[in-house]
């Protein structure tokens, strides 16, 4: 019945056997598992951070290989150089127009204001690992507390919000994407003047809650992350409405699916928004 485990301490000359029955061994390990399960996550996360920190190099290489393998597939969603320049010029014109309007408003009101994110700092970070599936949507990046990162800060990629910092170590941090099932983020949908909570749905999508069907929502509408003083001073694009249908359980509510506006799977780097960076 008792198959025994042998442990031989090197310092003891005589081979002394410490006998532990399989049942006790199993109980100890099970207990350890439950201790890990119910220990606060900010403590147990240190194991994951340590793993990423120690094996950062092979993980980065693996991610690059993975990205390279995916980018070899032919892509059809591109614009030619001429269209790209046209869009870029249009953007520059709009920016200048906005600046002019801002100056005029400043002159008329007599109030000194500043552009949103003018004083904000951006910390550029490389993505070490990315996990995007039904249960978990998160990134681990190579910047941490030492670089000024803190919990709750917003993370940008391709000029859109992709999530927030959920956990931070000295040199690495975890980004919880807004599509993660545990993520809740305040949003507003383009021209609708309503603000709601959007909950992640896994698999690269999220669902805004409690939007009545009397509001006009259509596929392609832009969704903005609401401003959050101290973290984000101005609403920023977070996604687009990909699907909009009546909720099966509540016919007076929309069942809306929002998808990110950037390809999170293929991200190499992200920018963390630090609203009031400390100047050294």
């Amino acid at each position: 019945m008792c198959d025994l485990l042998r442990v031989t301490p090197g310092t003891i000359m005589a081979r002394k056997r410490i006998r532990v029955s399989r049942r006790i061994l199993f109980t100890w390990f099970m207990l350890t598992g439950f201790i890990f399960l119910f220990t606060p996550q900010n403590l147990t996360n240190k194991f994951q951070f340590a793993f990423v920190h120690i094996f950062r190099w092979p993980l980065s290489v693996g991610r690059n290989i993975s990205l390279a393998a995916h980018t070899q597939q032919p892509r059809t969603d591109f614009v030619n150089r001429r269209q790209y320049n046209q869009l870029l010029n249009h953007l520059a014109n709009l920016e200048e127009e906005l600046r002019q309007k801002h100056q005029k408003l400043e002159k008329l009101s007599g109030l000194r204001n500043r552009f949103a994110l003018e004083g904000a700092g951006f910390v550029i970070a490389d993505v070490i690992t990315a996990t995007i599936d039904a249960q978990r949507c998160e990134l681990i990046i190579n910047r941490g507390k030492d670089d000024g990162l803190d919990k709750g800060q917003f993370v940008l990629a391709d000029n859109s919000i992709i999530g927030t910092i959920s956990d931070v170590d000295s040199r690495t941090a975890k980004v919880k994407l807004f599509t993660d099932p545990t993520s809740k983020i305040e949003i507003k949908i383009a021209e609708l003047n309503i603000e709601r909570i959007m909950q992640g749905n896994g698999n690269n999508s999220a669902k805004p809650k409690l939007i009545p069907t009397d509001k006009k929502v259509k596929i392609g509408d832009i969704v903005y992350a609401r401003k959050k003083p101290g973290f984000l001073d101005v609403p920023r694009v977070i996604g687009r409405v990909a699907q909009c249908k009546e909720d099966d359980q509540s016919p007076f509510l929309w069942d809306i699916t929002v998808r990110p506006v950037c390809d999170i799977d293929r991200l190499n780097d992200v920018a963390v928004v630090i609203m009031n960076p400390q100047k050294n």
């Binding site: 198959d3 025994l4 485990l5 399989r22 061994l25 199993f26 390990f29 099970m30 350890t32 598992g33 439950f34 201790i35 890990f36 399960l37 119910f38 220990t39 996550q41 147990t44 996360n45 194991f47 994951q48 793993f51 996990t131 249960q135 978990r136 998160e138």
Partner: peptide, 28 residues
Amino acid sequence: PSEAIITSFTIGFAADIAVGPLMGPRII
């Protein structure tokens, strides 16, 4: 069997570190 117990829990620990959202579920 004894080695199988140790390896199973250790592989679970590695799985929680490498892929799990939190520590514990895969160890168990």
